[in-house]
Design a protein around this nucleic acid. Structure first.
Lengths: 118, 118
DNA sequence: TGCACATTACAATAAGTCTTGAAATATTGC
DNA sequence: GCAATATTTCAAGACTTATTGTAATGTGCA
């Protein structure tokens, strides 16, 4: 995975409105939500919303599909996964005895989300 | 966890040099590394390095400890964990049947890192 | 076709971030 | 105390990003 793509993904999320958009769509799941409804919930104008959605799309974190006169946006899960993976990759030189319990908490977060799936 | 702290954390990582610094220190583990050595490996000057380390520190992703005439920087694991947790929180309205296998991959990444610990 | 609604593109201004060098601070060993 | 090394602070300039209004595009329906 390309470093600059990861930077783009992080930069896309590093904004109050875009983070809210992203989390809203993470919660919503693959159904997604039309741009206008997102704008209403996040509380910003349509021009500004379009700008931010484009940023998230370009970063590979959302994808857009036209649905009649609406455009629905939904989370792009694979893009999200890559981001999380990149940040934790090769922790402690691959020798976990060096970090001990350091990453246990991080692992547990994800284990919990996995548990919630079934 | 405060939204603006998460934004600060993501913004801190959303930069080529800072992402390299962070990953370098994730790989290194809790031992950390002196600022000068980080600068050398990442290939930027000391002034600029100090600027970026301060950003990561302020965002709660690193912590600094003085070690003689050096200052060692190491990953702040709890800050990192909060960031990852926030992004995946409440996926699919807590009803995983909505996203199906969507987040399995993300969970597996972390499960793998957990597996690597023992 | 023509009107209404949803979204995007463009342009301008405002605001924030990155990089650099020179100077300041902290620590060690003589 | 003084010189050497490590790191940080400060200030200036270049660069990038966010916001806003207005205009354009795309779609559905009468």
């Amino acid at each position: 995975m390309n470093e600059s793509k990861i930077v783009a993904g992080l930069a896309a999320l590093a904004h109050e409105h875009r983070l809210r958009i992203f989390r809203l769509l993470v919660k919503r799941g693959p159904t997604g939500m039309p741009a206008g409804e997102i704008a209403q919930r996040v509380g910003i104008g349509p021009t500004n919303m379009s700008f931010h959605l484009k940023e998230l799309d370009r970063a590979g974190l959302l994808h857009a599909t036209r649905d009649g006169r609406y455009v629905r946006y939904a989370v792009h899960v694979e893009g999200m996964r890559r981001l999380l993976a990149y940040l934790t990759e090769d922790c402690c030189q691959g020798r976990p005895e060096l970090c001990g319990e350091a990453f246990a908490a991080a692992a547990d977060v994800c284990a919990a989300s996995k548990g919630a799936r079934k």
